[in-house]
Design a protein around this nucleic acid. Sequence first.
DNA 1: CGTGGCGTTGACCGGGATCAAGTAGAGTGG
DNA 2: CCACTCTACTTGATCCCGGTCAACGCCACG
Lengths: 214, 214
Amino acid sequence: MCKNVLKEWLPAILEHKKNFKVKKGELIFKEGHPVTGIFFVNSGYVKVHKRWDADKELIVRFAKEGAILGHRGMGKPPIYPISATALQNGVVGYIDMDFFEATLKVNSEFTYKLLQFFADELRESERKMRNLAHMSVKGRVAESLIILRDQFGETEEGYINIELSRQDLASFAGATYETVFRVINELVNEKMLILSGKRITIANNEKLIKLTQD
Amino acid sequence: MCKNVLKEWLPAILEHKKNFKVKKGELIFKEGHPVTGIFFVNSGYVKVHKRWDADKELIVRFAKEGAILGHRGMGKPPIYPISATALQNGVVGYIDMDFFEATLKVNSEFTYKLLQFFADELRESERKMRNLAHMSVKGRVAESLIILRDQFGETEEGYINIELSRQDLASFAGATYETVFRVINELVNEKMLILSGKRITIANNEKLIKLTQD
DNA sequence: CGTGGCGTTGACCGGGATCAAGTAGAGTGG
DNA sequence: CCACTCTACTTGATCCCGGTCAACGCCACG
C-alpha cells in the first residue's frame, strides 16, 4: 500500500526535499491547518488519523519509510483533512506544495503513477468503510492485525514488527480499547494469537482470515 | 463532489465515448469483474456500492450526469472493487481503458485535475469512515440527507430531488432499513424533516446539522 | 386474484460502549 | 532509594443502541 514511492518514481524530486527529525508522539501536521506542502517518511512509523471528539479518533492508516503524507491536502479547501503523528523517533521529508504541483504538471508519468496510488488508496478506504459498517469488532481487529503484519512484517521470533498501544489498535479498528482488549483475549483463547508483552503473533492465519469474511 | 468533469476538463475525449442506455435497476459494472474501461454518466442517477453478504451492501456514493464511474478500477489488480447500478433510466458513456490511460499519459493537465478529484474523493471517503466508526445512526441519516440535498438539489416545492427507497437510504447511511425508518420518524417528530410520499424535505437545517457534529 | 416488493410497526436481545475501579510499570523528584 | 504521579493495562458491572425476527398492510403488476 505504501511503497517507496519516491525512489521508484522520481529520484530527482528527492533533491528538493528538506528533511527534519521528529520525536515519538510529535505532530507532523494537523487536521484543519492550512496546507503548505507534502511530506514523505524517511524513517520511523507514522499514524495518520482523524479526530472525532476531543478523546476519540480513527486511525486511517499507518505509514513507514517511503510513504507519502499529506497528499489528501491537494483537494478543494487547502486544509489538511487529517493529522499525522510520529509513532517513533524518525525523519520526514518536506516539499512545499508549489514545487510539488509544478512537478506534477510537467511530469505526467509521475502524475499518472500517483493517480494509480490514489486509486489504490480509494479502494482500501472504501473497503474499510464497508467493514466498519458491517463487520463485527472481532473481525475488524483480526483484519487490523493482518494489515499490520502485511505492512510491517514480522520479527525473527514471528511477532508483528510494530509496538502499538491498545489505544491505537482500538482507534485503527474503530472500537474502544476495553472492547479491543477483550476481543484480543478471546482470540488468544481460541489459539489464533499469541502475546508476549506488547508483541503479538498471529498463530493461526487461516482461522483469523475466516473471521475477516464475516 | 461529482462535477461535470469531462465537459470542463477535456472535451476532446468526449468524441471517443460510446454511449449506451441503461434501464432503472440495471447493473453497469460489477464488483469482482475485470476492468475493461471507464464510464461516465450522461443522464440519470447511479449508485456506486460494495457488497457485504448476499443481502447487505454499503452505498459508497451516488453519481449524476457528468460524473466518472469505475475509476477505482485503475489500481493494482485490474478488477472493479465496487459495483454501479442505475437508479433511473439513463445514458452512460464508455471509454476503454487503453485509450483513457493513453490520454492521461499525454495530457498532464487533465491527469492533474483528475488527481485533485481523487484527493477530494479520498477526503470524503475518510470522513465517512470516521463517521461510520463514531457517529450514531441518527447523525449518519441526517448527514446522508444533507449530502443528498447538496448533491441533487431540491424541487420547486422544496423536496430533495431524488426518490430513494428506504433500503438504499439505509445502505447509504450504513444501517438497517427498519432503524432508518424509525430514525426518520423521530426526525419528523422533532420538526427537522417533512415527508410527502416518498419525498423528503429538510425543514430545519440548523438542527439537522447539529446532529451531524456528534 | 395471487404474488412479490416495499413500507410500517412491535418484541426481543446481544454486542459493544460506558462507567468504575484496581494493578503494574516507568519516569521524576526529594 | 523510596514515595509519588502518570499512563497504560486489566477486569467487572451495567446499560442501551440498533440489529434481527416476525407480522401485517399496501399497492403495482403480471
